[in-house]
Design a protein around this nucleic acid. Structure first.
Lengths: 347, 347
DNA sequence: CTGAAAGCGCTAACAA
DNA sequence: TTGTTAGCGCTTTCAG
C-alpha cells in the first residue's frame, strides 16, 4: 500500500559481508561498532568487503537490537531565534559519529510541556537530549528527566547539582566588561533593559551590569533599569520609558540584541544620533546586529561551539566513555561596533 | 557498556496489549496503523487497553518490520536564514502523523553534495525528502533522487516534469505588483538588485520587475540593474554602484531583504532620508525587515505554510494516499511599510 | 580473538 | 473481521 523505499539491487546485509569474508556476523558487527577484539587483519578485510559490496548498515535494525536510536533530541522554544546556531553545533558533533538530530520545538509556557517531553523521550526515538534556554531553566524539566534517568546536557544553565551536565558562558563577567567599556567612554547615566525574568542567563547579565557600575563607582539609579521581555517590542517600550527619565541616560545596555534593535528604532524616530546622543549595546550578536545601522555593539556568545561541546559530550556519555562531571564554561567576547561612543560633553 | 535508555517498569509491547484484550498481535498492529478491517468495538477495547497499560509503540521495531522510518529529511543549505520557518512548517505537518524530522544542512556548492545526499537517503534513515532552494534548484539532485526512486517534494521550484511535486509562490506576479506600487508612487528611475544567479526563484523576481516596468511604461535602464548575491554585503555593493548612476534611481527594489538591509545601510551613511530621498523594497519579510529603521517594505512569502503543505503531501504519498500530481501555488503578499514613499518632486 | 543461536517488537503474507 | 507464522537486520548472550 505505502510506497516502500526501493531496494534494487537488494540491499546488502552483514550476512553478505560475513559470507564474503568468511567470518561470522558477529565479527562484522564488531567492526561496525568499533568494538575491540578483532584482529586488525580481519578488520581490514571486513572493511574492504563492506566497501566492495556497497554495504550500509540498516539503522532500524541496529536500533531495535541495541535498544538505541543514535538520535539526539533538541528541545527548544519555538520562537527562539538562536536555534540555528545551536542546531549547527549539534550537527557538527553528530557528523562522523553516526548520530543524527531530531528537533523538537515547543512552547516553554505550554502547561502540557512536561507531557510532551515525556512522550518525546519515551517515543522512544532519541537516546539523549540537549536543552537550551528558556527550557533548560525549568526545574521541572530536569526533574522529569532525572526521574526517567534520561541522558541530557543543558546549555546556558547553572548546574543545580554536581552530576548535572552543562555548558555555559561567562555572562556576568562579560556584561561587567561591557559596562566598563561604556563607563570608560565617559557615560555616567547608563540604563539597562533586563531580559525576560524566566530566563536565568538574563539575570546574570543584569548582575554583570551591576558589577560594572559598582566597579566604575557609578550609581545604579532604579529609574534607569527597566524590565524587558527579550522582544523587539519590549525594547521599544523600554526605550520610550527610559528616554523620559531625567537625567536622560546617555547609554542603554540591553540584555539582548532584539531589544537593542527596538531601542535603536526609538532613537532614530526621535532623531537622536547614535552614538553621539545615545550609545546602545546589545547581547548575543544575532545576525541582525551587524545589519542594522549603525552596526550594533554587542556581545558574542559562541553558541555553535557550546552546542558542539554539549552534543559531543552527550554522545560520549551514550557510548559510556564520559567522565562523571561536565560543566564547561566558554568565553563570550565584546564586539565593539558603531553604536557605542563617547558620552555627550554636556551630560 | 553504553548507557541504555532505562526501561523500568519494562516496556509494554503489542503482545501485552493483545493478551490483555484477548486478540492477536496483528489486530493490535492494525489499530496502531489505522488500518481498516477492525470492528469499532474491538478497536476501542484495544485503544483503552493501550492507555491502561501505558503502551507506546517501539519505533525501531516498526521501522525494521515495515521498512519505513517515519522520518522526513530536510536538506538545506547551511547558511539559509529562512530555514526556521521551513522547519516549523514541516514539523507542523508531522505532528499527529507519527512522523518526525531529520534535518540535514549542507553546502550547495560542495562537490560532494550528491554523495552526501545519496548517503543520507540510503542511510536508510528517512522515508522522504523535502528540498528547499538553492538545493531544490539543482537538477543533479532531482536526477539522483529520481534514479533512486526516492520520494521528494521541492519548495520554490518550477516542476521540470508533470510528475514532480512542488510548492511555489507567485514570485513573478508579486514582483510586478511591487514594481507597480513603486511606479504609482511616482518613481520612474527604479533600480533592481537581482538575486544570486544560482537561485531560480530569484530570476522570476527579476522577470516580475520587468513586467511591472513594462506595464508602467517605464524604461528598464541596464545601468539600473545590478547583480547581487543575496547577501547583506552584496546589497551594499549594489547600492554603492547604483547611487553613482545618473540619473540616480529614486527607488531600489532588492530581490531579498538582506540586500535591502545593505542598501539601507548605504543610504543612511550618505544621509539620504528613507523614503523621502530614496525608496527601498525587499523580498521575503525576514524578521529583520520589521526591525530595521525605517521598517522595510517587502513581500511576504508564506514559507511556513508552503513547508506544511509540502510535508503533508509527502506524508500522504508515503502512505500511498496521494494523488499523482501535486504542484501547489500559494500566494505571496505585499507588505507595505515605511521604506517606500512618493518619488522626490525634482526627479 | 571468534562464532552460534536467540531474540529485539513489530508487520507482511497468507489463511481462516 | 481476525489470526498464524515468518521474518526484518542487527546485537547480544554465552561458548569456544
Amino acid at each position: 500500500m505505502a510506497i516502500a523505499p526501493p531496494a534494487f539491487p537488494p540491499r546488502k546485509t552483514i550476512v553478505d559481508v560475513a559470507k564474503a569474508v568468511g567470518v561470522s556476523t558477529k565479527t562484522v558487527s564488531r567492526v561496525l561498532n568499533r568494538e575491540p577484539n578483532v584482529k586488525p587483519a580481519t578488520r581490514d578485510r571486513i572493511l574492504s568487503a563492506m566497501k566492495d559490496l556497497g554495504y550500509r548498515p540498516n539503522s532500524p535494525a541496529r536500533m531495535l537490537a541495541s535498544n538505541r536510536t543514535y538520535l539526539l533530541g533538541l528541545i527548544y522554544n519555538a520562537s527562539s531565534s538562536y536555534i540555528t546556531s545551536i542546531q549547527n553545533g549539534v550537527l557538527a558533533a553528530c557528523r562522523g559519529e553516526h548520530y543524527d538530530l531530531l528537533i523538537y520545538p515547543c512552547r516553554y509556557t505550554n502547561p502540557e510541556l512536561l507531557n510532551e517531553i515525556r512522550e518525546f523521550v519515551q517515543g522512544p526515538r532519541v537516546d539523549g537530549l540537549i536543552l537550551v534556554p528558556p527550557i533548560s531553566d525549568l526545574e521541572e524539566v530536569h526533574d522529569l528527566l532525572l526521574e526517567l534517568e534520561f541522558a541530557k546536557v543543558a546549555i546556558s544553565r547553572e548546574p543545580a547539582s554536581d552530576s548535572e551536565w552543562t555548558v555555559c558562558t561567562n555572562d556576568r563577567e562579560i556584561c561587567r566588561d561591557m559596562t566598563r567599556h561604556l563607563s570608560r567612554l565617559g557615560h555616567e547615566h547608563i540604563a539597562f533593559i533586563t531580559g525576560h525574568p524566566d530566563h536565568k542567563a538574563m539575570s546574570n547579565r543584569y548582575l554583570g551590569f551591576l558589577d560594572g557600575m559598582c566597579e566604575a563607582g557609578l550609581e545604579v539609579c532604579d529609574s534607569l533599569v527597566v524590565q524587558g521581555e527579550n522582544t523587539f517590542e519590549s525594547g521599544i517600550d523600554g526605550a520610550v520609558r527610559l528616554l523620559r527619565r531625567k537625567p536622560r541616560p546617555t547609554a542603554i545596555f540591553c540584555a539582548n540584541d532584539h531589544m537593542a534593535a527596538g531601542v535603536m528604532k526609538v532613537a532614530h524616530e526621535r532623531r537622536l544620533d547614535i552614538p553621539r546622543d545615545l550609545s546602545i549595546a546589545g547581547f548575543d550578536d544575532m545576525p541582525i546586529a551587524a545589519r542594522v545601522w549603525p552596526q550594533l555593539t554587542t556581545v558574542r556568545q559562541p553558541l555553535e561551539e557550546m552546542a558542539l561541546l554539549a552534543a559531543r559530550q552527550l554522545i560520549r556519555r551514550l557510548r559510556g566513555e564520559a567522565a562523571p562531571k561536565f560543566n564547561k564554561l566558554v568565553g563570550a567576547e565584546l564586539v565593539i561596533r558603531q553604536t557605542t561612543g563617547p558620552a555627550p560633553a554636556n551630560s
